[in-house]
Amino acid sequence: MADIVTKTVTTNYDKSIPEEVDSLITNVAPTDTPFLTSIGQGAKVKTLHPEWLEDTLGDAGDNAHVEGADSTATAITPPALLDNRVQRLEKAFMISEDLEKTDKHGRKSEIKYQSGLKTKELARDLEWNLINQTKQAGTTTLAAKMDGVLNFPGTGNTYDFDATPAATNHIIEDILNDVLQSMWEQGADPDCVLAPPSQKRKISAFTQGGRLVINSNASEKSLKMTVRILETDFGIVAVLPERFIAPSVDTTPDPDVYYDKLVIYEKGRLACATFRPLKREKLAKTGDAEKYRLTMSKMLKVRSKKCVGTITNLTRVQPAA
């Protein structure tokens, strides 16, 4: 009797079975920019190194003078000069002629699709730089860079745990209130707190003493575990979760340990200023491909340093319950 030979053909290798590709392209990268959204982009600048003035009032105190006496004039203190640098941000991409003509899943034009992606990437980059960047004057070989908001806290508006990283460096109400009080005493009206994810969770746990009011509906089977608004002694403050605050790094242990920062600010005194708005332009063709560039020139304007505060060296470790 002849041997029976069995051959198995799997779907992994049978090329006669067509592929199925969903027409929707999934992109789960975050695109929200809470800091940029809160301060707006209304301001415009006309130079690459804008400067502006910040003034203040003398301290309030006893003011009584003898009738008929001569006045004694004192020297005035001129306004302080603040400045920042305009920073150019860019994204460039190249699409081959063949790719643009090919039938594609999820989009008709690769050029339009990539332009949308790069625009979102630019917005994320702008958010990061508005927060974290350090100012640098531009040269023929160095790009100009702006100062982000972390470089603008006013005198007395900072708390950094003596610049000592530690797992016990938790954000607590007293620390936040100390910074808010300092800003308020100088005349600012802080209304926003920018918080990395770990610190946002800790702020949502500011519920000691039964002060958290919970409105619940049993039929919805939901439990709300968030604090978005803090009503403090120094005003109502919105707590905004932020993905793009760059942490500081303690390199002493192995592996490295990351520590967070908080930014407290008065949003009406800050703005993202525009020197050149977003523009897409087609570059010179040097081969069988189309080249495009998206570019814009922006800068952070902080009207007064009194309107910015920071808390740094915050551990990501959650406190014990």
Rank of each mutant, 00 (worst) to 15 (best):
V45P: 02
Y113V: 04
R88K: 00
L212Y: 13
K91N: 01
E90T: 10
S297E: 11
R269P: 08
S182I: 13
A321E: 14
V86C: 05
I171C: 08
K108I: 10
Y258C: 01
P78N: 00
L126T: 03
T37P: 00
A69F: 00
K200T: 10
V227E: 04
I25T: 15
R269T: 13
A75R: 02
E173T: 11
P78H: 00
T37M: 01
L300D: 03
F275V: 13
D233H: 12
V237K: 04
G68A: 06
Q136I: 08
T134D: 07
A320F: 14
A320W: 05
K285N: 11
L176S: 11
P165Q: 14
L99K: 07
K305E: 03
R269H: 10
P247E: 06
K291H: 15
K15H: 02
E281I: 15
D32F: 07
H65P: 08
E19A: 05
I229R: 09
P190F: 05
P247V: 06
D233Q: 15
E110L: 12
F234S: 09
A64L: 07
L294H: 09
E266C: 15
P319L: 10
T6G: 06
P34H: 07
V302C: 12
A92F: 01
K7W: 03
K108Y: 10
S198W: 14
W184R: 05
G61Y: 06
V149M: 13
R85F: 05
T232S: 07
L126C: 08
P253C: 12
Q136W: 14
R124P: 02
E97V: 10
F206W: 10
L150E: 09
F206E: 06
V9H: 11
Q208Y: 10
D254N: 13
V28C: 15
K7M: 03
S304V: 08
G106N: 12
M146F: 12
G42I: 02
G209Y: 11
K291N: 10
Q41V: 02
P30K: 00
H65D: 11
F161Q: 09
V5M: 01
D178F: 15
D62K: 07
P50E: 05
A69I: 06
S219K: 11
K298A: 03
P153H: 02
I131N: 04
A29P: 01
S304N: 09
L194F: 03
L176G: 08
D191E: 10
E19P: 06
I171W: 09
S71H: 09
T226V: 04
P79S: 06
G138M: 15
S204T: 07
H65L: 14
T274M: 11
D103F: 15
G138C: 11
A289V: 13
L150G: 15
T315V: 13
P247L: 09
I203G: 09
A271P: 09
N313T: 08
P277L: 15
E67G: 13
I175S: 07
S222E: 09
A246G: 15
A166L: 02
T295V: 12
A2Y: 00
T119Y: 01
K306V: 14
T139N: 15
P247I: 06
V308Q: 04
P78I: 00
N132I: 00
P190R: 10
G58R: 02
L24C: 05
L180Q: 06
P79E: 03
